[in-house]
Write a protein that binds this DNA or RNA. Structure first.
Lengths: 155, 155
DNA sequence: GTCGTCTTGACTAATGTTGACTAATATTAT
DNA sequence: ATAATATTAGTCAACATTAGTCAAGACGAC
């Protein structure tokens, strides 16, 4: 808490705006300047913290009047929600991205807090550890897809 | 008292903070420096003295602004039951026996119907498929133990 | 001396930061 | 219209900054 890195701070700033607004539109250089970082760091923040697994869609335009727009997507409105998560998972997925998928399920109301924690335990690093990094990610994806397919039936 | 080794001293230091706070967040290198030990000794202290059996959950992050956070959790009163299931699972388990473990949890009231089905999806044959039958069973065991450990405390 | 625990450090992994270069779009000059 | 220039954002690789793993050796209780 005391020693947050600058990426976390920028993330918080943007999410604070998104808490009250459906979307946020920035000029990259302006935000970079505001937080005293190089412009490409904004791309890093967006790439690591505003993915589709997190429930965000990002659009941008270059040139004069350029912008980056981050939009929070309403997952519940989407009847293909589970399908979209299945494709987001793919055939292998990192712990970080897996966490984002489970969080999306929770925020969409598809699972409750307890269920969230159980699933996170199931895809935890130690749980899917096989001795082969690549295989770990494949197993994690399989577990998530198995659960997603189950949830498709339930609801 | 006089004969404490450095690991014990570090343990006491952290537990003293935890006596007044729900959690403690440290920078590994900082604590290592403070007690004049190599950083990996902090991992040793945590691994041997802040386990889930002791009622602690540990989270960490690497990179700039990294940290190690130790959280004190409220253990539930089903610990002996969980322990017995953990040893029943062992280091590898078949789908059939895994099913029996999950059923025990359900019948004991530790998990509800929905949670049962999520866990079954997670340890399903397809979910833990690695191409190696023996490894499948090891992964299934790891997943179950990870979940069992999460059922030890309130989250 | 043996066994279990503790200590150490080399190596690994994850995450964050920076800047040079590239690409797209808009604006201005001809 | 077209070309040149300006103004944005994107990519990528090098480097920086943290924590994790593992195995060898030291230490201590018996």
């Amino acid at each position: 808490m005391e020693n947050q890195n600058i990426s976390d701070i920028i993330e918080s700033y943007l999410k604070q705006i998104l808490a009250e607004s459906q979307q946020v539109e920035i000029r990259r250089a302006e935000i970079a300047d505001q937080f005293n970082v190089v412009p490409s760091q904004i791309n890093y923040v967006i790439k690591t913290r505003f993915t589709i697994q997190d429930g965000y869609v990002v659009q941008s335009k270059r040139g004069g009047g350029g912008y980056i727009r981050i939009e929070k997507v309403k997952l519940l409105d989407n009847l293909d929600f589970i399908d979209s998560l299945v494709s987001a998972v793919g055939d292998h997925i990192t712990r970080h991205d897996g966490l984002a998928v489970v969080r999306s399920l929770f925020e969409a109301g598809a699972i409750n807090r307890r269920e969230t924690n159980i699933i996170l335990a199931a895809i935890d690093k130690d749980a899917v550890s096989t001795g082969d990094r690549e295989l770990d990610q494949r197993v994690r994806a399989q577990i998530l897809i198995s659960i997603l397919n189950h949830l498709r039936y339930e609801s």
